[in-house]
Simulated scan of single mutants.
Amino acid sequence: MISAVVVSHNEGHLLDACLKSILFCDEIIVVDLESTDNTKEIAEKYEAKYIYHQKVPVVEIIHTWIQDKTKYDWILITDPDEVCSNDLSKELLEILPSVPLDIGLIDVPWKFYFGNHLLKGTQWGGVQRRVFLVNKNRFIFTKEVHRGRHLKKGYKPYIVKNKGNNFVHHFWMQNLRQLTAKHKRYLNREAESRYNSGERSTIKQILKTPLNEFYSSFWIKNGFKDGFTGFFLSLFWAWYETKAKLKLYIYSNKIKQNNLMF
C-alpha cells in the first residue's frame, strides 16, 4: 500500500500528467500552497485528498508535516513537474510486496528536462538518481533544503537499476525566469542547510568555485552535448554554487562571532 504526496503551487498545468502517472498508488494527497489556478479541480478529477495550506518557502517543510497524516507507511514523494514512467510504476508494484524489512527507501532513475529539451549533460543531465519512495517508520524528514531526508540507523536503500525506460521524467524548468526565481528561493536557506550538514567554505574555495564548477558541468558532465542550453546552465550552476559558498562563509562567520560573544 502506497500513499503519494504532491505539493503544488500554481502548477495545475503540470499536475494532471503527474497525478495520472501515479494512479497505481492507493492514496494520493495534493497539498495546495495557496494556488490561484486549477490545482484543486485537477486534484478532484483524480479523487485525490486535497489539503489547502499556507505557502511555505521550501517543500521540505510540508514533508515533515505530512508524514504522520498519510494512511500508509510507504510514501511516494513527487512534484507536479514529475511523471512516473509506466515501466517504473510496474516495477515498483513488483518490488514493494517483497522488499526486505531493513529497506527504508527506494531510489530510482531520474531524467531532467529544460523546457522540452531532455538534458544529456550539465549538473542536471543524463541519468540522475532520486529518493522516490520512503517508509515513514524507517526514515527521517527534516526541514533542511536539499538535505532534508535521511534513513534511520539500521536501514538501507533499495536501488532500482536504470533499464532505459524505468525512470521519473522531471520537467524541471520551463524558462529562465522560473529557474532564477526557484534558485533564489533556495539560496535563502542554503547556507543554514549546508552549515548544519557540516559543510564549510573559505575565501580560497569561493574564488575557485566559478571556473571549477563551470568546467565540471560543461566538460566533465557533458554540458557541451546540450549546445547553448548546456553552456547557459553550466554558467548558471557556477553562479549558484559560488553564491551558495559565499553565503555559507558569511553564515559561518556570523555563528562564530555569536559564539564568541557568549
Rank of each mutant, 00 (worst) to 15 (best):
K45Q: 04
L246P: 09
K120V: 12
T202E: 03
N212M: 13
K245G: 05
P109M: 10
N166T: 15
K161P: 11
T122Y: 08
K71S: 08
N175S: 05
K184N: 05
I51A: 12
H169R: 06
N166C: 10
N175Y: 03
G230A: 02
K55D: 14
D37I: 05
N175T: 05
N196C: 01
H63Y: 10
H117M: 01
F139A: 07
M261K: 09
F167T: 10
R177Q: 11
P109D: 14
K49W: 02
Y249M: 11
I29L: 12
K55Q: 13
I250A: 01
I95Q: 05
L92A: 12
S85P: 10
K247F: 05
S3M: 06
F231A: 14
F236I: 10
N137Y: 06
I255E: 05
K254N: 05
N253S: 03
I62M: 05
N222Y: 13
D79A: 15
R194A: 04
K161A: 14
F171C: 06
A43D: 03
K40N: 09
V108K: 11
D79V: 08
H9N: 10
K225F: 00
F114V: 05
W110M: 08
V160L: 07
K152D: 04
D102R: 01
R194Q: 06
K247T: 08
M173P: 06
L23C: 15
K40W: 02
I95H: 05
N116R: 13
L207M: 15
L23T: 15
D226Q: 13
S98Q: 04
K40C: 09
I62V: 10
V7H: 06
S234H: 13
I29P: 12
V30G: 05
G104Y: 02
L211E: 07
T242V: 07
K45Y: 01
V7C: 11
V134A: 00
K69A: 11
E27S: 12
F218M: 09
Y215G: 12
Q178M: 10
E94P: 11
S216I: 14
E190V: 04
E82Q: 11
L19F: 09
T180F: 08
